[in-house]
Design a protein around this nucleic acid. Structure first.
Length: 220
DNA sequence: CCAGACGTTGTT
DNA sequence: GTCTGG
DNA sequence: CCAGACGTTGTT
DNA sequence: GTCTGG
């Protein structure tokens, strides 16, 4: 689960529209400030070395910025194994629509890429095999999320990528100070269809605007 | 000291 | 591994 | 995160 | 309610 790519010969990464916890995400990290950055796929859901089974990771898909420096599950990864998780959108779920939840898509206004603050870890299975996994740091939501959800993933400013990635950076306070809600201008919100709620749907239709809701009294 | 947890989200 | 609770 | 299953004996 | 699968 640590497929690695050559940055001098960048791969065509398949587009994903609906990534479930436990599936792989693309990550960027580096061994040192001077070393080349690596693109790798890590399993989403942090598996600390002491995990007894891979199921632990499914409960570690996010790490709270407020406590990430102290929690046993994340502390060492926060100190020494930080990464970026590039994406051009994320979903959050708002109130119920009948028995289902309404998903919303958040993107940059220009639909460009951003980078989540991520952590990774290495879980050893026996002497040979290992699983590399990652988690995404969350923080208080900004106003673009208002009324939908009170948490959001941390989106790093590009000028902070190098500091975040440098494994030798041990300025915990400075690192922690990066884990804040993004400026509102970085994101816009769009209502998308309920098909996002099933991770079996992973295609461009997931990010299409939601079909208009027929209202009561309206003819079909 | 040993044993047991180690997490987030959202809900009641 | 490391922290918390007892 | 959300959706969907969650169970055994014994057989239409 | 809680666990599993995606």
């Amino acid at each position: 689960m640590a497929e690695q790519f050559d940055l001098d010969d960048p791969p065509e990464l398949e587009a994903r529209y609906n990534i479930a916890p436990g599936q792989s995400v693309v990550t960027i990290r580096t061994d040192s400030a001077g070393a080349p950055r690596r693109i790798e796929r890590f399993r989403w859901g942090l598996l600390p070395p002491w995990a007894e089974d891979a199921g632990i990771g499914l409960r570690m898909i996010n790490a709270r910025s407020e406590s990430v420096a102290l929690k046993p599950a994340f502390r060492s990864a926060f100190r020494r194994r930080r990464c970026l998780v590039p994406a051009d959108g994320f979903y959050e779920w708002g109130g119920a629509v009948g028995s289902l939840k309404q998903p919303y898509l958040f993107t940059r206004p220009d639909r460009g890429l951003f980078a989540f603050a991520g952590l990774f870890d290495v879980w050893h299975v026996g002497a040979e095999d290992e699983v590399r996994s990652s988690t995404i740091v969350t923080t208080e939501a900004n106003r673009v999320l208002a009324g939908i959800h009170d948490r959001m993933p941390v989106i790093l400013h590009p000028r902070d990528y190098a500091n975040w990635l440098d494994p030798a950076n041990d300025d915990i306070d400075a690192l922690q100070s990066l884990l804040v809600p993004s400026p509102e201008a970085w994101l816009e919100r769009q209502t998308v269809g309920l098909r996002v709620n099933s991770t079996r749907n992973d295609d461009p239709e997931c990010i299409a605007p939601a079909p208009p809701q027929p209202r009561q009294g309206e003819l079909l």
